[in-house]
Amino acid sequence: MDTQWWVNDDVYCQPLTTDYLEEATKMLEISFYPEENVSMAFGISEDPQAVRELSDMTNEIAKDGISVIAIDKNTNKVVGTVFNKIQVKNDPIFNNFAKSWKSPRSKALVELMAEIDSLFNLFEYYQTDCLLELMFLGTATVYRGKGIAKKLSELTLEIGTNLAKGVNVRKSLDGTEMPLGPRPKVICSTFATIATQKIGRHLGFEIGAEKLYSEMEFQGTKFSDVITNGTTKITLEYKKL
């Protein structure tokens, strides 16, 4: 598998490395948390503590060696990212994070992620102990509409397919090889916007569960009152590798 993939003449993708980790995390802080539907509903960007806690989590996720970033060749700046996680059955990593967190906003976001996952148990459905989760997919605001998120998602699917076949494409943040480890049989993601749900259709994902924003609330405010961009639901989607 190559280590550089072009989106267009100006933007290319590569595995996330130590050199770009801080910048990739900052891009989420600037463009993802203030504008992504669920993050908006929880008011993540309004709470510096919540941002710090989620950044700690994405930094931990990055250690799995399967996250990807997009870079503008002209500025050498990160303009897109997807933090991907190898999920192992009965591993309470996210709950363990939430237990130590102080912000009710970040706690509620992780609790929602767990709730959506519980609506359709992929571990049981596929009788597997391991899956790959596409997480924290974001593009810098001025770079949207250029196919960057779609390319990052396609590359994540390619990574998952390789791992499922036993091809070790995992790389540590410093670029060294990692053990293959458990091989995922399924790729999944929680898609919270119309744009990412279209990506799910493009990749051939199936919808395992969905929940309307009108049925969800935080601190007395319905998600549907905050999310006014046309997206009406969150979906849990998956594809066998």
Rank of each mutant, 00 (worst) to 15 (best):
residue 64 D to K: 06
residue 48 P to Q: 04
residue 33 Y to M: 05
residue 58 T to C: 03
residue 45 S to C: 12
residue 58 T to R: 07
residue 37 N to M: 06
residue 16 L to C: 09
residue 9 D to I: 13
residue 7 V to P: 00
residue 59 N to W: 10
residue 72 D to S: 04
residue 62 A to M: 08
residue 75 T to G: 06
residue 65 G to Y: 02
residue 61 I to S: 01
residue 48 P to V: 01
residue 38 V to D: 07
residue 64 D to L: 08
residue 20 Y to L: 10
residue 28 L to C: 15
residue 9 D to P: 04
residue 48 P to F: 07
residue 42 F to M: 04
residue 24 A to W: 05
residue 65 G to V: 04
residue 21 L to S: 03
residue 53 E to V: 05
residue 28 L to N: 12
residue 11 V to N: 00
residue 65 G to E: 04
residue 64 D to T: 02
residue 49 Q to V: 15
residue 67 S to M: 02
residue 37 N to G: 07
residue 62 A to K: 02
residue 72 D to T: 01
residue 40 M to Q: 14
residue 61 I to P: 01
residue 42 F to R: 00
residue 18 T to K: 13
residue 60 E to C: 14
residue 29 E to S: 15
residue 30 I to H: 10
residue 22 E to H: 13
residue 7 V to G: 00
residue 34 P to W: 08
residue 48 P to K: 01
residue 18 T to Y: 13
residue 58 T to P: 05
residue 7 V to T: 00
residue 66 I to T: 07
residue 64 D to Q: 10
residue 12 Y to R: 06
residue 70 A to C: 09
residue 74 N to S: 14
residue 12 Y to F: 15
residue 40 M to D: 09
residue 10 D to F: 12
residue 12 Y to S: 01
residue 52 R to S: 15
residue 59 N to I: 10
residue 63 K to D: 09
residue 55 S to E: 09
residue 16 L to I: 06
residue 37 N to P: 08
residue 70 A to T: 10
residue 46 E to R: 14
residue 75 T to L: 09
residue 19 D to M: 08
residue 24 A to P: 03
residue 30 I to D: 15
residue 19 D to Y: 14
residue 35 E to K: 10
residue 18 T to F: 07
residue 54 L to I: 08
residue 65 G to A: 01
residue 44 I to R: 03
residue 37 N to R: 02
residue 53 E to H: 10
residue 12 Y to W: 13
residue 57 M to S: 04
residue 53 E to M: 13
residue 76 N to D: 14
residue 51 V to S: 00
residue 62 A to G: 06
residue 30 I to V: 15
residue 53 E to P: 07
residue 14 Q to H: 11
residue 17 T to N: 12
residue 28 L to D: 04
residue 18 T to R: 11
residue 69 I to F: 02
residue 15 P to W: 03
residue 67 S to R: 06
residue 27 M to I: 13
residue 55 S to V: 08
residue 57 M to E: 05
residue 51 V to L: 05
residue 63 K to E: 13
residue 43 G to C: 02
residue 28 L to H: 05
residue 60 E to G: 11
residue 33 Y to W: 11
residue 49 Q to P: 07
residue 42 F to Y: 05
residue 28 L to Y: 07
residue 13 C to T: 05
residue 32 F to E: 02
residue 25 T to M: 15
residue 8 N to Q: 08
residue 46 E to L: 15
residue 48 P to Y: 05
residue 17 T to S: 15
residue 7 V to S: 00
residue 56 D to Y: 08
residue 37 N to W: 09
residue 64 D to Y: 08
residue 23 E to K: 07
residue 76 N to Y: 10
residue 54 L to Q: 03
residue 76 N to R: 14
residue 27 M to N: 04
residue 52 R to E: 15
residue 54 L to P: 00
residue 50 A to D: 04
residue 39 S to M: 11
residue 48 P to A: 12
residue 64 D to E: 14
residue 8 N to E: 08
residue 14 Q to F: 14
residue 18 T to C: 11
residue 8 N to C: 11
residue 30 I to E: 14
residue 41 A to G: 00
residue 40 M to I: 08
residue 30 I to P: 05
residue 13 C to N: 01
residue 33 Y to N: 04
residue 47 D to N: 06
residue 9 D to C: 12
residue 54 L to D: 03
residue 17 T to Y: 12
residue 49 Q to I: 15
residue 54 L to C: 00
residue 7 V to M: 06
residue 8 N to Y: 11
residue 12 Y to N: 09
residue 72 D to E: 09
residue 14 Q to R: 15
residue 73 K to D: 10
residue 62 A to P: 01
residue 52 R to C: 13
